[in-house]
């Protein structure tokens, strides 16, 4: 197994009266690229600070490659963190920033220089070693922060909202850079983010935190296609939710609309939500009769607001491949593949 496996076992952390983490357990495989996804207040940043060693858990254990991190200060953990603000030392040059951690290890000056230029080449910043942080652009500062953390050759690299301070054009580029670094180094990357798109696009595993609990852990497809709960379905991507009641194991009765076949098995007579992702919905001649009440044009796709019988309203997203669009007021048929419908207990 690859190095850098993180195991969080029943970790709890309170700040005053507020329980930020409430018995959280999570396993992160060595060498993986895992995103800790969650809204603000979900506890993701607290978990990050616990792993880095800036806070101590009130209960539970944090193990890195099987070694209990309890009582080990941040400066002795084989874990490095890229701060959201980058936290570059303003009084040091780029080279001194990157070499800071190496000098702390007592490496000889020549070895430090060699490793620093190696890191500069890795993040493609050759030639900027003598700049001061204030002379760097946002993207350059971020790469210096990355190089500084990676120079220590950590088993585990923590990234705290690394894209938050970058503008849109730069994010796309930085994402592919992060993926490249992860591929080349094989270090475990743990990315903390509130941006679900970023988590889905970057990580090979996503752990969704919800108010101090682990809501779901899995591949990006698991979270999007097979959300474990209503909260996960709502947080990751968009979803239409239609209230109904199960009439037998395989169908849900929706007032005014009729019965919908669903894949999940739930006890008969239970109140449920049927969830359908907007892009799974087909608009055509067949299916449930509906009226288009609004069309929002997004260029590559259009989002339609559709009124169905029984006051049910849903949103459908269709790619604009042929230029044909349904218009407001048009009567259409709405359908979706049977497997696309998700069922959640109310």
């Amino acid at each position: 197994m690859a190095l850098g496996a993180l195991s969080v076992e029943g970790v709890a952390k309170r700040f005053g009266a507020a329980a930020v983490l409430d018995g959280l357990s999570l396993r992160i495989a060595g060498g993986s690229f895992t995103a800790l996804l969650g809204a603000s207040g979900s506890g993701k940043t607290t978990l990050l600070r616990l792993v880095a060693g800036f806070e101590a858990p009130d209960a539970g254990r944090i193990l890195l490659d099987g070694a209990d991190m309890d009582g080990i200060p941040p400066y002795e953990r084989p874990v490095n963190l890229v701060f959201q603000s980058y936290a570059l030392f303003p009084h040091m040059s780029v080279a001194d920033n990157i070499g800071y951690g190496l000098r702390r290890e007592g490496l000889a000056a020549g070895e430090v220089r060699r490793r620093v230029s190696e890191m500069l080449a890795l993040v493609r910043l050759d030639g900027l070693e003598d700049r001061k942080p204030r002379q760097l652009s946002g993207g350059q500062a971020q790469r210096v922060a990355l190089a500084r953390a990676l120079a220590k050759r950590p088993k585990l690299l923590l990234l705290d909202e690394p894209m938050a301070a970058l503008d849109r054009g730069l994010r796309e580029h930085t994402r592919s850079e992060l993926k490249r670094l992860h591929r080349e180094l094989g270090t475990t990357f743990v990315l903390v983010t509130h941006d679900q798109e970023e988590a889905l696009a970057l990580a090979d595993r996503v752990a969704l935190l919800d108010r101090g609990h682990l809501a779901q852990e899995g591949t990006p497809e698991d979270l999007y296609e097979r959300p474990a709960s209503l909260a996960v379905a709502r947080f990751v991507g968009e979803i239409n939710l239609i209230g109904g009641r199960t009439s037998d194991g395989g169908t849900v009765e929706i007032p005014g609309l009729g019965s919908i076949r669903v894949p999940a098995r739930l006890p008969i007579g239970s109140e449920v939500f049927v969830g359908i992702r907007p892009e799974k919905i087909d608009i055509g001649a067949v299916g449930w009769p509906a009226t288009v009440t609004d069309v929002a044009y997004h260029g590559d796709r259009s989002v339609y607001r559709l009124a169905l019988a029984g006051g049910v309203e849903i949103r459908a997203s269709r790619p604009n491949r042929t230029g044909e669009q349904a218009e407001v007021g048009e009567s259409v048929g709405v359908s979706w593949p049977e497997g696309a419908a998700l069922v959640f207990p109310k």
Partner: peptide, 18 residues
């Protein structure tokens, strides 16, 4: 003072005195 600078130094292996 930006405390994250001190945390970054700790994270990079510096003892509190350093």
């Amino acid at each position: 003072f930006d405390r994250s600078l001190e945390e970054a130094a700790l994270d990079l292996g510096a003892t509190p005195a350093t």
